[in-house]
Design a protein around this nucleic acid. Structure first.
Length: 247
DNA sequence: TAGGCCATCTGGTCCT
DNA sequence: AGGACCAGATGGCCTA
């Protein structure tokens, strides 16, 4: 049977990657290495199994006296087996390290996704059957925070004295801020729905028609309901930080 | 079927 | 040295 080092190592590869545990069973690999080392013997070197050889005569139990012509061959074979064993061991160690690193990386990404889910859960008014993608979640969160900060800033300007934050941000009105568009609704209806929400007028003085800054709704980009914030003036587009373009 | 999104693997780099 | 972080590659799934 022609077997190469590559096939031996790929066998080890399969053995370790098929395991769901993060650590490899090295003792198992060592056994495989012995098999591989045996398979490594070229077909031309066939004869009695090397493990059965005792002494230069090849007869089990025979004294190891004068050097037979195949003594050098035997030493070469032993060196070859040792080399294959050490390479396979090194490979299996690397493999187990790789498997552990994969586990850590998977766990890290799961943690990242959990954090993204937590972020989605505090972003306002998502239709039940829609889920923001990762990039949408980050962009919308950024813009949402930005819009809230701008709302506070403008309210502080327009409403000197305390209580602005309480009037601006009653907790039950957070869901009234615009969320992402529902696939079933077009951008216009979504945006107008957010603007016409029961909380809209009470939530912010910016939505008061008498407010100098409430004349027009703010939308970043045409047909971009995701980042439409009714009540915020358009000129905020030219302030920093700005909305992240959605494209 | 093409394109978007996602999970996973992988090797490289940086940090402790 | 080992772990965290990152970016590229790849393949699966879903939708228009």
């Amino acid at each position: 049977m022609p077997a190469t080092l590559e096939t031996c190592l790929s066998d080890l590869d399969c053995a370790s990657s098929s395991s769901s545990s993060s650590t490899s069973d090295l003792s198992g690999f060592l056994t495989d290495e012995e098999d591989c080392a045996r398979l490594q013997q070229p077909a031309s070197a066939s004869g009695p199994p090397v493990t059965a050889r005792r002494g230069a005569s090849g007869i089990p139990g025979a004294p190891d006296t004068p050097r037979a012509p195949d003594d050098e061959q035997e030493r070469r074979r032993r060196r070859g087996r040792a080399r294959v064993r050490s390479e396979a061991l090194l490979h299996s160690l690397r493999r187990s390290q790789r498997v552990k690193a994969n586990d850590r990386e998977r766990n890290r990404m799961h943690n990242l996704n959990a954090a993204l889910d937590a972020l989605r859960s505090v972003l306002p008014s998502f239709p039940d059957d829609t889920k923001l993608t990762k990039i949408e979640t980050l962009r919308f969160a950024y813009n949402y925070i930005w819009a809230l900060a701008e709302t506070l800033r403008l309210a502080d300007q327009g409403l000197p004295g305390g209580g602005a934050r309480e009037r601006l941000l009653p907790s039950q009105c957070a869901p009234c801020l615009p969320g992402p568009p529902s696939p079933a609704s077009d951008a216009e209806s979504w945006a107008s729905g957010a603007a016409a929400s029961p909380c809209a007028a009470a939530a912010s003085p910016l939505s008061d028609p008498s407010s100098p800054v409430a004349s027009e709704d703010f939308t970043y980009g045409p047909g971009d309901p995701l980042f439409s914030f009714p009540g915020l003036p358009k000129d905020l587009l030219h302030t920093t930080p700005r909305f992240i373009p959605y494209h």
